[in-house]
Write a protein that binds this DNA or RNA. Structure first.
Lengths: 230, 230
DNA sequence: TAGATTGTTAATCGATTAACAATC
DNA sequence: TAGATTGTTAATCGATTAACAATC
């Protein structure tokens, strides 16, 4: 029985997805600025290269606390530390890579993960031709070992890059093994229990989005030239 | 000089990004339903597996026209054709793959692209060890040939998977060559002219988003158990 | 002090949801 | 006809922007 005075949900109010997405970008930009020797930055200058307005930068940051100094701006070192903590990237995350096809191999070599504390510590695949192969100090293991290995290595996050047809069943195995979050690259909608976090990365859908934008901007050019030929 | 009566912008009103994103998902779901032998579907049943409410499905579709039949629902065949046209995936799109590292190789083999009419027709890389290699009926070409090849093969879209440091300069080359859209996998914010469409896919940022969700849901569990132990 | 810049409030804008007459 | 379901309107909800007192 909960002792909450009102029937308040147990979930902490998550910052809106859009805010978190932008904060990731700010963090990257701040690291770039620091590498260039800057020590402080204003909301306007931080947002400009990302096409984000100064008021929005301040509001996004204010969501998580007071980090700025009126008249000065933000101290870059302090803000980086604070945002890393907020995003949960101030410590290492052990990852499982599930599905060792082309995409899996690419993710294994992706530098953007390592630099954020994400470390692949296990690779799984069911193809007998792949199981047992050694890559990067790791050995490809069969899905049968998934549950055991995930627990032993305290893996909390998984990169799911298996074919769409088996995505749901493999995701169910990951959930049963106790992972806390899944980054799904398979173009299939997954159903997971509420306590497991899920983000889908659908590359085909991204490309469709791009095609739509291009198609539309062509339409507008067409329309504009018609209009001007009256 | 424009003949527009008022100083209306020439750009056609784009459907909100969120709408287009969902429509891509509807299309995929519809194709799945068709493959299962269904012929009509209601907004409620179409949205359910995607966790989208019936009213939202109808509103999203209504953005592009009237496709439904009161009392019946939507005819799947007709709706698929209509949405393909709307999204611009009712014809083939020739693509350039720029940067042939791990990620580039994975994208080359990605089946989700081909099935949507996206066809990689050129591969570029500046590494002398890669230039000249033959893969999948294509030859890896140097960036120096980019402009010429893009024009000759009428390439409109590019997959940019080069290192972040050179992403902007390679993007500038693509723009100069006349591509209409870029799907950027490099973790760097790009500046492009307005008439070129851009979508960024930042895998590191996605994983950060996931880490944040996990971190937050842990907090809420922690808080809930504290609350219940009073 | 004067200039710069914050955090926050109020105003605007846009997106989602509920409700319902119209239709098959 | 009765039941199902649409497209659309009005109500709600949430996110962005502008403005400004407070602060260095």
């Amino acid at each position: 029985m909960s002792s909450n005075p009102e029937s308040e949900p147990a979930t902490v109010k998550l910052a809106p997805k859009a805010v978190v997405g932008r904060v990731c970008l700010y963090l990257r930009q701040l690291e770039l600025l620091r590498s260039q020797g800057e020590t402080t930055i204003s909301s306007a200058k931080l947002g400009a290269p990302l096409l984000v307005k100064n008021a929005q930068v301040r509001k996004d940051l204010a969501y998580f606390g007071q980090f700025g100094h009126p008249g000065i701006g933000y101290r870059i070192d302090d803000l980086i530390s604070a945002l890393r903590h907020v995003l949960g990237v101030d410590h290492e995350w052990p990852l499982a890579l599930v599905g060792f096809g082309n995409l899996g191999r690419a993710l294994l070599g992706y530098r953007g993960f390592r630099s954020r504390g994400f470390k692949i510590v296990a690779i799984f695949d069911n193809d007998p031709a792949k199981v047992g192969r050694k890559v990067d100090r790791l050995t490809v293991e069969p899905l049968g070992s998934l549950c055991e290995v995930v627990r032993a290595r305290q893996i909390t996050l998984a990169l799911l890059c298996v074919p769409a047809e088996v995505a749901q069943s493999v995701a169910d195995m990951l959930v049963a093994a106790g992972v806390a979050g899944i980054l799904n690259f398979a173009p299939a909608p997954l159903r997971l229990p509420d306590q497991v976090s899920l983000i889908g990365v659908d590359l085909g859908a991204q490309l469709e989005n791009l095609a739509y934008k291009v198609e539309k901007s062509r339409d507008s050019v067409r329309r504009a030239s018609q209009a001007s030929s009256y």
